[in-house]
Simulated scan of single mutants.
Amino acid sequence: MNAIIVDDEEYARQALFFLIKQQCPQVTVKGIARSVAEARKILKSEKIDLVFLDISMPLEDGFSLFPDLEKNTTSVIITTAYNQHAVKAIRASAVDYLLKPIDKDELHTAIKKADEWRTLRSMSAAQFNNHAMVYNSLHENMNEIKAIRKINLPHTHGFHVVDVSSIMYILADSNYSTFHTEPGDKIVVSKHLKEYESILEDCDFCRIHKSRIINLRHMISYSNKNGLVVKMSDGSEHTVSRRKSPKFMETARRIFRK
């Protein structure tokens, strides 16, 4: 199978390229793209069977490439650091969904699914219906995907793998986000806070101010005596903006009813 890798992070692109080269001789990487726009150019000039596609990228996210793939038999394997995209990946008919850092055994399984999908596309309608169970594989893995609670925080030479539950809060500083984790570590990432807001919203996090997101599991108190203020498990205090307070109260009630 001819494949391309689409990912905006250099380390992730290189790591996947060498993993495929070492572990998957049946796959030839015909191109590497840093954006959806670059991927479109490669797809116009090369016959591609398989796309390894990151989701969280600037300008256009990975899902915006799917309309360009509908006209041919190209399969898609989602490669991302975030499990929150799983449901949308299923709806978009990705053949599999791999979380970074990518495990070689999971990579082999995903490529096998892509090969089966290619075979299905070449079958008649009757044959296709008889083999529809191949599509169920991603759905069957959903419980496992949802149980994963790690996030990759990229830096210049690679990335940190962090337990989501250890993140206390995230502070914005221009184009950077600073993660404050247990036991008091700080990790600076060159991505906007807004990106992590959408990624973490289903993991008990809430944006309480334009410059901060908190993990409500680390909140120890809330007071509106002198403004709206939350106190976190490390002793730090953070102001909840009045515009964000309704969403904060709604999220807190939902979480602490569990």
Rank of each mutant, 00 (worst) to 15 (best):
V189E: 01
A252W: 10
S93C: 07
I77P: 10
G184T: 14
R13E: 03
S190F: 04
R149K: 15
H160T: 07
F179D: 02
C24Q: 14
L138S: 11
R217E: 13
N226W: 13
D163S: 14
S124Y: 07
V164P: 05
L228N: 13
I167W: 04
K21A: 12
S166T: 15
I145F: 06
R121N: 12
D185P: 01
K112Q: 15
Y97N: 14
I20Y: 01
P154L: 04
L43H: 06
Q14W: 02
R121E: 08
A132V: 05
A86Q: 02
H85G: 01
N175D: 12
K44F: 08
P67T: 08
K225C: 09
D68Y: 12
M1F: 03
I255Q: 08
E144R: 11
D49N: 12
I213D: 03
K41C: 03
T79C: 15
T109E: 10
V36W: 08
R257Q: 15
M1E: 00
D8H: 10
F63M: 02
L216Y: 05
V240H: 04
T109P: 00
D61C: 09
G235N: 13
Q127V: 03
K191H: 11
R40V: 15
N129K: 15
R243C: 05
M168G: 00
A81Y: 03
V188M: 12
K210E: 14
C203V: 12
E201I: 09
A94Q: 05
E182R: 15
I111P: 02
N143L: 14
S174R: 11
T181A: 02
E106C: 12
F128I: 03
G227P: 00
S45I: 08
N129D: 14
V95C: 10
F128P: 00
A125W: 05
R242P: 06
L171S: 10
S190L: 08
S137G: 07
C24V: 09
G158D: 09
I78E: 04
A3Y: 03
A12G: 01
K100D: 08
P154G: 04
S174V: 12
A3T: 02
D185M: 11
R34L: 07
A252Y: 13
I5C: 08
Y135A: 00
D96L: 03
I220H: 03
I42V: 14
I220P: 00
P183C: 10
C206S: 13
S75A: 15
F179E: 06
D204Y: 13
H238E: 07
S166D: 15
T156M: 05
A3L: 06
H155L: 00
R121M: 09
K88Q: 13
T109A: 07
D202I: 05
S241M: 12
K30V: 01
S93R: 04
P67V: 04
H155M: 02
F128A: 06
Q23L: 00
I213A: 06
I167D: 04
S241Q: 14
E201F: 10
N224K: 15
E201D: 12
A92W: 01
N129G: 09
A89S: 06
L50G: 04
S56Q: 09
K113D: 04
K186M: 11
T73I: 05
H218Y: 09
S221A: 14
N141W: 12
T28C: 03
G227S: 01
G62W: 06
D7C: 02
